[in-house]
Design a protein around this nucleic acid. Structure first.
Length: 566
RNA sequence: CGGGGUGUAGCUCAGUAUGGUUAGAGUACCUGGUUUGGGACCAGGGGGCCGAAGGUUCGAGUCCUUUCACCCCGACCA
């Protein structure tokens, strides 16, 4: 490819609405162009990078026996009715009707379609396991698309679905996909972490996310500094805290605490640590057909993790409660607690189990109890509902936990029979009995990976592509194309690269040296061979994008040098 | 869906508080010339329904009403 033919409109200035480096650089480098909110056109350079990533994914998934298919982007709404997700997905599903007035949905993910593809066709355990995947445009009408390719409404995803006759077999495939996904990220030279994820309302027996580490990431991860443990903050756990519990014989006692409401005020007043105070958090939980106020109890120095809280009660949504609603339940802010005849559902954090000598609200203005014993609760109200803090102890090794930010580029999920049941997809086992398929689902955000790579590989001058993702690995730059000697040598090297399978671009534009250099740095070719004034001394220069170091190389040696280096 | 912000040349933005020549700059683009190792210089040139609709006024980019789009924070996100 010659630069003079390449459609890559670059610009010096960043678009005013780009916040993330990846977003700004992709636009400045002429990789993408925005169409509307969350919709982007991929230009030649962007498409090349996407192709490169897809090639790696296909190679790696091929190694574990997954087969590529391509399902229709337009999907019949009936299927979404069968699984019940037409309601659950809500407005995120883009619906429309065809000329015959049939309702359709643009596919946001393809569980239903994939189950439909194999049901009544895969009918025997002898045909299992089966892993089918596709790399395909998805559409989700997100409430708030943002950050360029990071969170678009239309995006490219690799989505795989596996079918099994046993959970052991699913576990096997799950591990194989994890290994395969890690290989893909390794080849893209990304630094990442595999973390435990919230399985959410769908349930299932396990779910992991692959997180590319970047400060700009939208997810908060809890990671251990001394072992491999990592989890999304929505799913992270910790070792039980070791609060000193020396005294246990103190009797329950009501204490006048005039206008003392906050955990800080209470710990000062009682001369104790926040960890010995029971914090009461009231939330409204939305269910399918009703809503309910629930009290959550946790240590004063902990905070409620809303996803965990929601999972603990099995609701759809968790929202704040206003003071009037609390008063209607005879609760008052600052003095709420578990004591008394409250007809309210209560959930207690695991960490409080079997504690004694705690302080809690008395459900009476200006009063608290001390000497409270947690044994008043039955064990079935306990759940893990706290948000792990930095500095907490690792549940695996006891090491120190800290936060990191991550970009979710992959999610693997043991689905079980959720969809096969809903869509009545069965096979006959070796005893001739009918069983639902046990499924796994695996997704990787291909277009998001473009952004993720840049978030991890860029500097103030531009993008820094890795060899496997770069649109072109070598850029041959002719300093002055009016110089016939330079041009001739460049053409010679260009042809040599092409013949030897090196992905090469020849910058034969009429621009001046400075312009070409800035452009090469912006686009981020891993290597640029500068053919310029040093040629008269028999030398060319090799610029490495990552270090920005220029090395003089004898012109007759550059050929072998490139072959060796790339 | 709540809160905030912005729409003027391809791009980045002035101009709008206080209405008044033909709406500006930088950059990009075209032509000619000079330059040629870090986004060059000189001269000339093209490019605007001032987001859209309605209104007030002798007169609207500027004031009023409605509306649309885009961005940010939050909620949401298999």
């Amino acid at each position: 490819m010659k630069m003079s033919n390449l459609y890559a409109p670059t610009s010096k200035e960043a678009p005013s609405d780009a916040v993330l480096a990846s977003h700004a650089l992709l636009i400045r480098g002429g990789f993408i162009a925005q169409v509307a909110s969350g919709l982007y056109n991929l230009l030649p350079l962007g498409k090349m990078v996407l192709n490169n990533i897809e090639t790696i994914i296909k190679e790696e998934l091929g190694h574990i026996g997954a087969q590529e298919v391509e399902l229709s982007f337009v999907t019949p709404a009936e299927l979404w009715g069968e699984s019940g997700r037409i309601e659950k997905f809500g407005k995120e599903l883009l619906r429309f009707k065809d000329r015959k007035d049939n309702l359709f949905v643009l596919g946001p993910t393809h569980e239903e379609m994939m189950v439909n593809l194999i049901r009544n066709k895969v009918t025997s355990y002898k045909q299992l396991p089966l892993h089918l995947y596709q790399i395909k445009t998805k559409f989700r009408d997100e409430a708030r698309p943002r950050f360029g390719l990071m969170r678009g409404r239309e995006f490219v995803m690799q989505d795989g679905y596996s079918f099994h006759q046993s959970y052991e077999d699913l576990d096997h495939e799950f591990d194989a996909v994890e290994a395969s996904y890690k290989k893909i990220l390794d080849r893209l030279e990304l630094s990442y972490r595999v973390v435990e994820a919230d399985s959410g309302a769908i349930g299932g027996s396990g779910s992991k996310e692959l997180m590319v580490l970047a400060d700009s990431g939208e997810d908060t991860l809890v990671v251990c500094s001394s072992c491999e443990y990592g989890a999304n903050i929505e799913a992270a756990t910790r070792a039980k805290s070791s609060i000193d519990k020396s005294q246990s014989s103190i009797k329950l006692q009501k204490v006048h605490t005039p206008n003392i409401k906050t955990i800080d005020e209470l710990s000062t007043y009682f001369k104790t640590t926040p960890g010995r105070i029971v914090k009461t958090v009231a939330k409204k939980i939305i269910f399918d057909d009703n809503e309910e106020i629930v009290l959550f109890f946790l240590r004063g120095d902990d905070t409620l993790q809303e996803s965990k809280a929601l999972n603990a009660v099995g609701g759809l949504d968790i929202v704040d409660v206003d003071e009037d609603e609390l008063k209607a339940k005879e609760l008052s802010v600052g003095f709420m607690g578990p004591m008394g005849e409250l007809k309210i559902r209560m959930i207690v954090d695991n960490d409080l189990m079997s504690e004694t000598d705690m302080i809690c609200g008395a459900n009476e203005v200006d009063y608290h109890y001390k000497g409270m014993d947690m044994s008043i609760f039955k064990t079935d109200v306990y759940a893990d509902i706290i948000e792990v803090k930095e500095g907490d102890k690792c549940p695996k090794c006891g090491g120190v936990l800290g936060y990191k930010k991550g970009i979710e580029v992959g999610h693997i999920f043991k689905l079980g029979t959720t969809y096969s049941k809903a869509l009545k997809a069965e096979f006959l086992n070796s005893n001739g009995q009918s069983e639902f398929f046990i499924m796994g689902t695996y997704g990787m955000g291909v277009s998001r990976l473009i952004a993720a790579i840049i978030e991890q590989h860029h500097d103030e001058k531009g993008m820094i592509w890795t060899k496997q993702s770069a649109p072109f690995v070598v850029n041959i730059m002719v300093s002055n194309i009016k110089n016939q000697e330079q041009l001739n040598f460049a053409e010679q090297l260009y042809k040599f690269c092409q013949k030897n399978g090196i992905n090469v671009l020849l910058d034969d534009t009429k621009e001046r040296f400075g312009y070409k250099m800035k452009n090469a740095e912006l686009i981020g070719f891993p290597y640029t061979v500068i053919i310029g004034k040093e040629l008269q001394n028999g030398c060319v220069q090799l610029l490495r994008r990552e270090s920005l170091q220029k090395t003089d190389i004898k012109k007759e040696e550059i050929f072998d040098y490139l072959l060796k280096e790339i």
